[in-house]
Every structure is written in C-alpha cells, then in structure tokens.
Amino acid sequence: MNRALLAAALCSTALPAVAEEVNIYSHRQPELIQPLLDAFTKETGITTNIAFVDKGMAERLQAEGDRSPADIVLTVDIARLKQIVDAGVVQPVQSDVLDANIPEAFRDSADQWFGLTARARIVYAHKERVADGAVTTYEDLADPKWKGKICTRSGTNDYNVALLSAVIAHHGVDAATTWAEGLKANLARKPDGGDRDQVKAIWAGECDIAIGNTYYMGQMLNDPEQKAWAESVRIVFPTFENGGTHMNISGVAMTKSAPNKDAALKLMEWLSSDEAQRIYAETNHEFPVKPGVPVSELVASWGTFTPDALPLSEVSGHRADALKIMETINFDG
C-alpha cells in the first residue's frame, strides 16, 4: 500500500470513543446523592466516581495538588465551601446555565462555588410545652425565659458556626458574642450529638426547644425508630429582627486540578437543572435553589417563610469571628 492509501486508511478508521467520567470528593453521604448521579449518568452517559471525605477535604486537595483525581467537591455547608476556597484548591467557573439557574444569593460572587440545595436553620418546639408564637426570632433564643430549656449540638459545628456568622452579619461581633453567651446560659445540657439527637432530647423531656436543620424532620419521619421524636415537635421558622430565616446550602465547586473539566461542568450544570432539583427535593427533603422548582409535599406541609436576604458569601466571611466567639466563651463547656 502506497503512502497515500495508508493515510486514507488511517483517516477512515474510527478511533474508539474515550468514556467521559467525573471524579467527586463529597462531604455528603454517597447514598444521599447517588439517585442524582444515577440519573445524570442515564441522561448523559457520563460515569461518576464518588469518594466520601468526611474531614480534611481542603488538606487532602492541597496535599494532592495537581495530581488530585478530583474534579468537583460536594459540600454540606457554606462554611466548608469557604474553607476550600480559602485553601486555594478550587477554580472559578463561568457558566451561563449556572448563573441562570442559581440565584445570586446562593452562589459565590467570584464564581468559585454554587449552591445546589437550601435548608433553613430552624427551631424544633415541643407541641405541648411550647405555645405557638413563643419563639419568633433567633434573638429570642438568648432570652433568659428559656433558661434550661434549649438543646443544640456543638457550638463549633459548621451549622451553628454559620448561624452565628449570620448573627454577626446582622448585629456585629459584640452583639453576637452577647447572644451566644445568652444562648449558652439557656442550654438544658452540654451540647452533644447531631440535630436529630436534640429532637430526641425534646421527646424525652430533657428540653423544650432545639436548633436544627429542616431536612432532619423528613429523615426522622421516615425512620420507624425516630418517627415518635419528630411527631413530638413542630417546626418554627424564626427570623432575625431585621431580616428573614437563616438559610444554609449544600454546594459544589470545581477543583483546581480537575482532569475532566468539561464533564465536571456538565455535571455541575445538570445538578442545577429542574430534574436534579426535583430529585433533591423529593429524596433529601431540601429546598430547591432554582426558582420555580416545587418543594416536596412533606416540606410544603411545614409552612412558608421568608429567607434571609443576606448573600451567603457575605455571611461566610464572618466564619473566623464566629468560631472565635464559640471557642472564647467555651460554648461546649
């Protein structure tokens, strides 16, 4: 075969397609997001590989550097998104799809992270021991009338640090310190366990109100051992005196190394789509961030509220001060 025929033969030979994939480091338990990943793969043909990283996400990505296999990071909290941004292990993502689907309040002003679902930090109140309207604001939680009546998880837990960061954003460091001291003085017991453990404590008569995330109500109602805990309380959506109900998010960011950048962007955009937001709402009992996507029937039954208008990028900027306050007042002591 002469050279011309050989070249033509080579050009006509189809090369095997390289399968696309996305590698994910996740703070979220894999079973919570697997339905989403399965739906994404079914629709796009792109394979997903997930590694659960409970702690040390930023440190792991820093240690791996350019060799990291991770394309995207999924987190459970604005504070953790802030941590990975501050660690310099993610990159900005410009996407008209993400900008259109995700409201400005739920994404980073520098495009380094994007919220995927929202949850409210609310009060669980005993149905009989706490009257309707007894708690209306976060500021109420520091009122001495609740002395010995409140349960919460550790003050240095990311969810409580984020709430205190929002208090700082609304009222300043000094007022937030006074508030945290008042909340500590009202605790019925030393902070311990997760949000569901606080509801269990209400059911057991150890306290009357607790601070927690909304979606735990759905999880408890679906667990035969915990259903009685959930049925002993009602959800109250407090507001700030000069704002709305504190919201937190689960979110996504693209790593700086991202070996599969194009496929990773496809997944990020898909997670903000109507279909993905519907799956989030139905399976995880969370609030979709994309406007127009309805909440689940169960979540709707908890009532309506006005989300706080402060951008989470502003709230997250107070994380260091919030953590310092919790440690200085020895909130967990």
Rank of each mutant, 00 (worst) to 15 (best):
D332I: 10
A320I: 06
M326H: 15
A162K: 01
V236N: 06
N49E: 03
E275L: 05
H318S: 02
N160E: 06
G243F: 11
S301H: 07
K184M: 01
G45S: 08
E241V: 04
S68F: 06
N157G: 10
I24Y: 12
K149W: 05
D158W: 12
G193V: 00
K145Q: 14
G317V: 01
N248F: 10
D71V: 03
C151I: 07
E128T: 15
S68N: 01
E269D: 09
T177S: 02
N157V: 01
M268C: 05
H126V: 00
S301C: 10
R80A: 05
H27R: 15
G212E: 13
M57N: 05
T328M: 06
E181L: 11
P238W: 04
Q277Y: 02
A100Y: 04
M254R: 02
Q219G: 12
D192Q: 01
S313Q: 06
E64S: 13
L267R: 03
E181P: 02
K266Q: 11
F331A: 14
W113I: 04
G333F: 01
R153H: 10
A162P: 00
A120G: 06
Y25L: 13
E64G: 07
D132R: 10
I84G: 00
V90T: 07
V85M: 12
E241H: 01
E64L: 07
A125L: 06
A39H: 13
L6C: 09
K127P: 03
